Amino acid sequence: MSTSNPSSDQAAGDWQLPWTGGCRCGQVRLRISAPPLLSMACHCTGCQTMSASAFSLSLAIPTPGFEVVSGEPVIGGLHGADSHHYFCPHCKSWMFTRAEGLDDFVNLRPSMLDRHEWVEPFIETWADEKLPWASTPAKHSFGTMPAFDAFPALVEAYAREGVRPAKR
């Protein structure tokens, strides 16, 4: 996924940055200082199981704009070579994911943000595994994961059309 984000010039105004957040118990705290590249819902059965829900939500945050400011998240979930899922060691909240070989961004669970009511998925992935009753307002739906070369256009479209937080 390309991390060039045409909206970075307006980041502070359009995106109401920086954002703060943390796990449910507050032992791990985060700071986000760059606008997201993309918002997504993943309907794969792995995300259904890990989130105990119909899908997982994520915001792809450029790595330089993502910071753990307190606490020490631990790897949990699957301990595979392709992704590392980070959790609070105390309350076990699934906080973010780092995909192996994709070091340019971090997939943040938006519910970790102090203000996350504005987040809605722009794309949904693994819709072939979607529960029959689950629906999202995503503008783009993919049966599996989109081809890697589709991401630059999706990132560009999200920079133009993605939902932003309301003014504070």
Rank of each mutant, 00 (worst) to 15 (best):
A41M: 06
P62D: 14
C44N: 06
Q10C: 01
G46A: 06
A166P: 13
T45L: 01
V163C: 07
L102M: 09
H85S: 13
G13D: 09
V119Q: 04
R98W: 04
M40F: 02
V74R: 12
D9I: 07
P165K: 08
L37I: 03
Q48H: 07
L38G: 01
G143D: 11
G76T: 03
L78W: 08
V106H: 02
C47F: 01
A34I: 02
S2I: 14
P36F: 08
G162I: 01
H43W: 04
C23R: 13
F122S: 03
E67Q: 15
V155F: 03
F151K: 10
V28K: 06
G162W: 03
A99N: 10
R24I: 05
K167Q: 13
R164F: 01
S111Q: 10
M95E: 09
S58K: 04
S93Y: 12
G26N: 11
I75K: 14
C25S: 05
W19Q: 15
M112N: 12
F87C: 07
L59P: 06
Q16W: 07
P64M: 01
M95R: 11
D103E: 15
H90G: 04
I61G: 01
H140E: 02
A157W: 14
V163G: 07
R29S: 08
A166V: 11
Q27A: 15
D114N: 06
A12K: 13
P121C: 02
F66L: 08
V155I: 11
F151T: 09
A127V: 01
R115K: 13
D82V: 11
C42N: 12
W15E: 08
T20H: 14
D82E: 14
N5I: 09
V106I: 04
G22C: 11
P64W: 04
L38N: 03
S111C: 05
R29D: 07
P137C: 05
H79I: 03
A12D: 12
M112E: 14
H116F: 05
P110W: 09
Q10Y: 02
P132T: 13
S53A: 05
P35C: 01
V69S: 10
P137K: 14
K167C: 06
F105N: 08
L38E: 03
C25W: 09
H84D: 15
A54S: 10
A147S: 10
A150I: 00
D14V: 09
G22P: 07
F122K: 09
T97R: 10
C91V: 06
A147P: 08
F142M: 00
P132E: 15
T63E: 05
C42W: 08
G101D: 07
E100P: 06
T20L: 03
A166Q: 14
G80N: 09
G80T: 07
P137R: 13
E129F: 03
C47H: 12
F151D: 12
A150C: 03
